[in-house]
Design a protein around this nucleic acid. Sequence first.
RNA 1: UGGGCGAUCGUCUAAUGGUAGGACAAUGCCCUUUGGAGGCAUUUGUCCAGGUUCGAAUCCUGGUCGCCCAGCCA
Length: 576
Amino acid sequence: MTDSNPQSPDLHGTGARTQNNFLRDIIAEDVRTRKYGDAQIQTRFPPEPNGYLHIGHAKAICIDFGLADEFGGKTNLRFDDTNPEKEEQEYVDSIQKDVRWLGFQWERLCYASDYFPQLYEWALQLVKTGKAYVDDLSADEIRQHRGTLTEPGKDSPYRTRSIEENLDLFIRMKQGDFPDGSRVLRAKIDMASPNINMRDPVMYRILHASHQRTGDQWCIYPMYDYAHGQSDSIERVTHSMCTLEFADHQPLYRWYIEQLGIFPTQQIEFDRLNITYTLLSKRKLLQLVSEKRVSAWDDPRMPTLCGLRRRGFTPEAIRAFCAAIGASRTNGSTDIEMLEHFQRDDLNRRASRAMAVLHPLKLVIDNYPADKAEFMEVANNPEDPSAGTRQVPFSRELYIEQDDFRELPPPKYYRLSPGKEVRLRNAYFITAQSVVKDSAGNIVEVHCTYDPASRGGNSPDGRKVKSTMHWVSAAHAISAEIRLYDKLFLKPDPSDVEEGQDVLSNLNPNSVEILTGAKLEPSLANARPGDRFQFERVGYFCLDPDSTPANLVFNRTLPLKDSWAKEAGRQQKGSK
RNA sequence: UGGGCGAUCGUCUAAUGGUAGGACAAUGCCCUUUGGAGGCAUUUGUCCAGGUUCGAAUCCUGGUCGCCCAGCCA
């Protein structure tokens, strides 16, 4: 951090420094010049309740809530519920839950539907001042009249209707005199505008649909473009942050606000979040769910907040990630490693350690008494002494990881092999002596001897070992189901598909692997759903809600970084 | 080929006419009772061409490339 690169303080207790960005600059300047007088900074997070929130929304939430908070302002949660055909209460509920889980509290809970009466009054006003008209053209005809990107549109034949007729027709639209799709209310702006959004945009459509909040009270519904800017204005939102694709709509929002003479909210657009190997489109995520390519919205492979939560991700890590990526107006794609880094960083500091053997291999200590068992004192988190210690049982027969033994060790393999001495973490030094194989030649047991003087993991003679391995006592171990998750998509850009294919063709067929024979240290029997652990030398895991005392289920949040895997990969590559 | 927006290490992002910096990733070394974590070091960048200026990532001109817009979706 240098003087020429000032950064904001650590705002959310995430430990991550927040990058300066142009949004903060704009707000800071508006505060400095007292653009809004004594009024506080007001922002809003405006989701449509038509799906579950994902990590892309987390970025927007952190911007909307974070920036307001930084300048002593407030943020409303507003549901942009103007399309009853796609919206559901289930989504309204999940969105509130996810925003809270992320760690934010809204000032007011609002709904665009709360403004339907006001919006209707304003529409009446625009009709009366000749700024809006009822169009009888069909959707198809309206499209044909709209022109193209390079050609201007043509006026609708109904554009010159009298104010009286427009008023009568619009009122009757609202009364339910007409069927769906028969007419719309349009703003009278400019069919030749180079900005297509200004070519007499539709304000209201007839929809005899029941709305999740207003029921059958309305049969005309405002378009998003007619509702959004005014909703911001009603809430006296000072800074309305949204994604880049809405930049073209700004002139329209301003037009409505000017015609109506209401509070002018300032809209500022920033770039949408993209992450490699990840799909961030509500429509496509809905497709994954409805076509059962994943188990549900909260499938741990989903980038939804509920999916990430179930996977074991923490709100602190997601906030730190969002702070680190900042915001700009550049289209790009953030490496998934960045997200994973902040999650590992958080869990490394906070997660309790435990020993778990995913692929068990029996280890027998020949010179350890068969009837003996002792308890080893083990640190719950070496990064955090205040996390305390626990007692872990040790006995003659243990399980170790299959990967931790090689009869013929490759170069730079430091783990157990015949004649080699290693340390069992927090226990003893052992030396491999022999193996037992089944009829197929598979190693089913490794026999070793231990050094009783090395209890706790150090030899009094100062002898060093190259490797430390985790273990669980066979007699005391508990079993669990382990779900190993990997990337849902094969390509960095999932939408990079062959002609005629869709994103589903890029689905990773091995995005989940279920292990049923894992052996865990007994303390893990007390875990509760949502509890997160680091299984030492393996990765971060989280107890799944599917878990029962009789069948524990752990989700792998992320594997630990594994420099041996990298070395082994290098060796394999080199030998080809 | 209309309009809008943009282009800085491999990736994300700072520098607002004055030393191109940080994070992720990568590489090497050190350390380690997790081949984890940590420490140190290193590599890589201003889209191109002109111009203005003592000085340009920043300002100007002209290109190039990318994204968004033709829902009665949001």
